[in-house]
Design a protein around this nucleic acid. Structure first.
Lengths: 232, 232
DNA sequence: AACAAGCAGTGATGATCGTCACACTTGAGG
DNA sequence: CCTCAAGTGTGACGATCATCACTGCTTGTT
């Protein structure tokens, strides 16, 4: 891994929806205030309750936002793949960090200070509009999640999570056939808001039904369509 | 109830955070595209899955966003009091309505068409910034809610809901002493994501502890601080 | 090769909570 | 004033799930 040049950063930024409306020159200006940073797998970017307002864009790797409970349990709020932005909430409402973000893989990001971002938004209203779209999408997803957590059983939630992961993998270039997902059972359980054991039991059911094959730290979905039968 | 004049509408809009940065003249222009509408208690403004993109501002009364499950259960995502904006998500991501909004009381709103709102945002970037703040706040609240739904017991969630309602009432002018909340047990249960019966049982505990007094369709909180002891 | 650490499978158990059922109360409308 | 719908209180029951407590299986490290 090598620190990117400003040019490389600009190229990355072009792929980020929030900045997609900018001209080359404007993009270059954004790149100037964007600081490349690197985190090892497992590293914590910020913690719930911290008082910072930097936002981050994933370059490579995988980041994750979690909420932890005092008894040690935790749930995953969302994962962030390359091109996605996180940590922007604290920039607009002056509150502390509402979640902890850590890295699931070795991850390169670029960081943009809150002040810089706010200035950019003032100069380029189209950034604000894009940001609204991004927030609207997140809010929808979270409402969806909340409804699931309230109405559906663990089985159904695990199946739904698998379905989402398949969609994400497909959007990311995976083909129509089998889709490999690199998550442990514990990761899946956290996404589904359940315990590792419960998830494990249901995954065994799916495996016996021939819908998935499990491996250590990974899992292959053979029949994504069949998953829907378990979502109700 | 009388249809408001454009002038009255402008006065209302001034109190809405999203429009608070505008000049009198700009506010008047917004008021021109804002259509006053009236809904009876129980009326539905739009339903999950609808394909509309109008947004609404509450003038008087109380609106509520809910998600319904096929088996008849439902949860309340949020309530909207006078001055608050709802229905704006569909304006930015071209998706269908993600929730149903109905009226808990006879409610007056002003409606702004999606196209008008987008145009206004283009002309007045400060609206976009305010909107981002509003969305950020909602997203935070929803994440909070999701964490509660995952980690906490019904007791704890009901207590938390009561706490929130007390805060809202205080912010709305209620004094330091007893706070009256006009919700049925069923309403509270929905906010807490639980069944009416479970909520009822725990409210009885709170009543025996002297922390609240219940009445039909209303409830008085005597000791808001004591509620915290039940949130863990 | 031995070992530790992380991941996965699974039984037993008990707590929580939704559901059903029904009685009781209250208040608004005819 | 009577009715009826809406709101509330409570018991019984069962399903779901988290938790605990293991065992066994990989993988990579010393």
């Amino acid at each position: 891994m090598v620190a990117p040049t400003t040019d490389e950063t600009a190229t990355l930024l072009r792929a980020v929806p929030v900045f997609s409306g900018l001209t080359e020159a404007d993009l270059a200006r954004v790149a100037e205030v964007a600081v490349p940073r690197y985190f090892e797998a497992g590293a914590v970017v910020f913690r719930e309750g911290d008082d910072s307002d930097t936002c981050y864009i994933v370059r490579t790797g995988l980041a994750r936002a979690i909420r932890e409970h005092s008894d040690g349990r935790s749930i995953t709020l969302s994962n962030f793949v390359p091109g996605e932005l996180f940590g922007e909430l604290a920039m607009f409402d002056n509150e502390r960090r509402s979640a902890t973000v850590d890295m699931l893989e070795n991850t390169e990001v670029v960081a943009i200070l809150g002040g810089d971002m706010r200035r950019l938004m003032g100069e380029h209203p189209e950034i604000a509009v894009k940001l609204i779209s991004a927030l609207a999408k997140r809010l929808r997803a979270t409402n969806e999640r909340l409804a699931r957590q309230s109405f559906q059983t663990v089985q159904s939630r695990v199946a739904a999570v698998l379905g989402q992961l398949v969609l994400a993998a497909r959007a990311d270039g995976a083909g129509e056939g089998d889709v490999m997902i690199t998550s442990t059972q514990a990761d899946l359980a956290q996404l589904a808001g359940s315990s590792r054991e419960s998830a494990s039991r249901f995954l065994a059911v799916l495996e016996r039904a021939g819908i998935i094959t499990q491996g250590r730290g990974r899992l292959t979905v053979h029949d994504a369509h069949a998953l829907e039968r378990y979502v109700y």
